[in-house]
Design a protein around this nucleic acid. Structure first.
Lengths: 334, 334
DNA sequence: CTGAAAGCGCTAACAG
DNA sequence: CTGTTAGCGCTTTCAG
């Protein structure tokens, strides 16, 4: 950083004023072609690059989006990041990425840091802890600084900002409905991730589908670590012919668990998971899933952000993406 | 951002000077306790936060690390990010993350953007395209700006900077050796990712182990998309009893391919992959792997960066982490 | 067509 | 103990 040449440096070398250099590089009509050529040549020679900090300070705009992700190891969020990056790049924005690791503290820190660093807008998916505690003060603080917030996937209704999520209720309903139509009668909802908004909506969709079909709801909970073992036990003790798992990992673990409990899949037991990722596709049998459309969601979230920046007073948008049921080998052909 | 209160704003409200406010908030001994209390109360009330851009401009240091990842969807790189984030946070650094998507252009842009934004140091894993083309000019440019560069995992010897990688040669050698000792004689190297430094080193380790054992080397290449189909064909046409796959995904796909070709694993065919991630653990049979230790690598990379920042003239460090062979169900118990 | 000057928000040397 | 001033690098009036 110390070596970096500045406008002042160039001006000194060329024996002209700073403002002339600035204007020449910006191709201002005020400047003669000959000076422009000269200035640009010097800039190239000395590898001049404008200092983004100084620019940001001046413009009060950094062309930067902040993004806060609860867990980058989850394939779904990685996909969202790809979508965000894609759309952001297309619009000339760079990204500052933070990880909340599902904690309120880190989420809070990241939010502050991003607003300190002058992010033009912040995209975030609320951490599990934040959702469980129902805390929203830190989110509203950010809004107070006049920094647009866009929530994706995990959304809090208590915060007045743009958001985008998939239709979790609908997705779960359809998946359950598919299981029922393929002849399953004893379906259990497997949920080791707990109390996120997303998990709750999926559960409700599941319950509604069962109710509409006049079937009895069943639900199984454990930690993700013990899922295979405890679920196998559960499957032996109960009459079950289908599983709706709340995400991808619990989906494949449910498959492994069922197989170890002696089930053949999908003949004796069908499994559907959420979040279509690398695990679902490569597992054997491959996992049927409700596609969460991470990349699309990321792209749309950026569009919401840009729209908000260009249109600060427009009405708040709460966007919902339809899910898509991807049938693979863990479900019977209907 | 418009709403944010500044030192000047606080000073006006309190009817004192900007520098007094600044010093009071910094707990300078020059300032009386009573003013400190007053200033701090006002700062809290108005939710004052210092502007990081202005600070960075002043200090020529932003407490920010830039990081450039070729592919965030690869579990390995996601793990590295976690390690980096962890260690960075511990040391008060924030992260600006960029994705190169395996392209030279994006890598170059990201590098420029990070140096423009005043990143104190940049950690990067070289994109595939960069490695294939052997391009290093953009990397040396960054060094020219006096910004420390730390390369991790995919390292270019042509750039004079700190680096950290695993001992790929050694890891591949040991894995191959393990296969040989467990009785395998016809081992094939499966590599759909092409010409990265990492893939090459793994192949060399593989070849050396075979040479030392007096066995004939075999190698199979295809795109990752066609791997399952083409490899199954290959396995039917050749006598093969073990596979060393260059990464995790090709590892599990090799398993699937072999099973579809009628092999029983590990009895008739053993498989070892690289990069220990979520796929390896959850697949059935689970995949034995050479652990690439992403999180550790991320942490160490940050340490290298901080060390370089505190010690600009110290000798260049090229660190190498030993790998670890994790035996699961895709290999015979030796 | 070119330059001087002010200011973005912050810090720090220097006066008072 | 408090305030004035200059300057980080850049842009942008406003003069010349």
């Amino acid at each position: 950083m110390a070596n970096k040449i500045t406008l002042k440096g160039l001006a000194q070398i060329l024996g002209i004023s700073v403002s002339t250099v600035s204007k020449a590089l910006a191709d201002s009509p005020e400047i003669s072609d000959s000076t422009k050529v000269m200035v640009k040549a010097a800039a190239r020679e000395h590898k001049y690059r404008p200092n983004a900090l100084a620019r940001g300070l001046k413009y009060k705009r950094t062309k930067t989006l902040g993004i806060i992700i609860p867990d980058i190891l989850a394939n779904f969020f990685a996909k969202v990041v790809v979508g965000i990056e894609d759309e952001a790049e297309k619009n000339g924005y760079s990204l500052i990425t933070c990880l909340s690791r599902e904690t309120l503290t880190k989420e809070d820190h990241s939010l502050k840091m991003l607003s300190d660093a002058g992010a033009d807008a912040i995209l975030l998916s609320v951490s599990r802890e934040t959702q469980v505690k129902g805390e929203v003060k830190h989110l509203n603080d950010t809004l107070h600084y006049d920094i647009p917030l866009i929530m994706f996937d995990r959304v809090s209704e208590k915060v007045e900002c743009d958001s985008i999520e998939i239709d979790d209720h609908d997705g779960a309903y359809n998946a359950t409905d598919h299981l029922i139509k393929s002849g399953c009668k004893n379906i259990v909802f497997v949920n080791p991730i707990g109390d996120t908004s997303v998990a709750q909506k999926r559960k409700e969709g599941f319950l509604d589908a069962l109710k509409d079909a006049g079937l009895e709801p069943k639900s199984f909970t454990s930690t993700i670590e013990n899922l295979e073992e405890e679920l196998a036990q559960y499957l032996k003790e109960n009459t079950i012919d289908a599983i709706l798992a709340v995400d991808e990992l619990s989906g494949v673990r449910s498959i492994n668990s069922a197989i170890s409990a002696g089930f053949s899949i999908p003949d004796q037991l069908s499994v559907i998971g959420f979040t279509d990722g690398i695990l679902s596709q490569n597992h054997r049998p491959s996992l049927s899933t409700v596609n969460q459309r991470g990349t699309l969601m990321g792209r749309e979230a950026v569009k919401l952000a840009i729209n908000r920046l260009e249109n600060p007073t427009s009405e708040i948008k709460r966007q919902i993406i339809k899910t898509e049921l991807l049938l693979r080998d863990s479900t019977r052909k209907a």
